[in-house]
């Protein structure tokens, strides 16, 4: 018998605080595996977001910093410019990146900063209690949209990846998901590719969006949440490579 799957060293051997079936645990694992497989553990610096993944630095065994809400791309800019040999990534949720931090991510991409952004999109504000996020789907029931989100007054779901893909400074933008093992492998490939671009000194920002489940605030079982991503969420947020000019 040969062990073919076990916890990767860059993922600390601790229990996470996430709810059962949360996608953050998966994203952390894929990130840690990508870091270990590329052998960049010693020179990687991560940025934890404000949101459910605020304690990501307790789970990922790389140097990490916690920054103000939404300002991760701005801090990453400074880190990369002063330490060009380091691999800098920011790990942000949709409340962090698509709501309060929209200006920072757009301008970081616009300036072609050589950083990697992992964007976890679960269409809801998880940490604060399931309120509507800019990425919430039309008709989706949240704490602040009890009748379901209506475009008249509450707007449409914000497609950050499409928005960034049109900027010349963004060199790699891909939207992935974690709803089945095949998609999980794809997501890992995308994260690795984004890191490889940064390692090779590609001039621009790389972003991997991960559609991730939030069973607690979608009021669904974990298995049903995965189905919901596949059937409903991917209609509004189509999966695939939006840009790869490397």
């Amino acid at each position: 018998m040969k062990t073919v799957f076990k916890r990767t060293p860059s993922l600390k051997d601790t229990q996470t605080h996430y709810c059962p079936g949360c996608g953050h645990g998966l994203a952390h694992r894929l990130l840690a595996e990508a870091i270990d497989e590329l052998g960049i553990h010693d020179r990687t610096i991560g940025i934890a977001p404000v949101g459910c993944a605020v304690l990501a630095y307790d789970y990922l065994d790389v140097d990490m910093i916690e920054v103000a809400h939404g300002r991760a791309p701005a801090v990453a800019t400074g880190m990369k410019r002063t330490n060009p040999d380091k691999i800098i990534f920011s790990y942000q949720g949709d409340g962090d990146l698509a709501a309060i931090g929209t200006a920072e991510i757009i301008h970081a991409a616009h300036r072609a900063e050589q950083i990697t952004v992992i964007f976890i999109n679960n269409a809801v504000f998880g940490m604060t209690g399931g309120q509507m996020a800019p990425t919430t789907l039309l008709g989706q029931v949240t704490t602040t949209t009890p009748q379901g989100r209506q475009s008249n007054g509450q707007g449409f779901p914000l497609q950050i990846s499409e928005l960034l893909a049109i900027l010349p400074g963004a060199i790699y933008v891909e939207r992935c998901s974690v709803y089945n093992p095949a998609q999980i492998s794809n997501t890992k490939k995308a994260i690795k590719h984004a890191f490889e671009l940064q390692m090779n000194g590609a001039k621009g920002l790389s972003l991997v969006e991960v559609l991730s489940p939030c069973p607690t605030y979608w009021h669904m079982s974990p298995a049903r949440s995965m189905e919901w991503i596949e059937k409903e969420m991917t209609k509004v947020f189509p999966l695939g490579k939006l840009k790869d000019i490397a």
Binding site: T3, V4, F5, K6, R7, Q15, Y18, P181
Partner: peptide, 18 residues
């Protein structure tokens, strides 16, 4: 290893013959 791939809490370890 499909179970281990989808486990959000990385609690599954898989071994196999070949």
């Amino acid at each position: 290893a499909a179970c281990a791939t989808i486990c959000p809490d990385v609690v599954i370890e898989v071994s196999r013959e070949v």
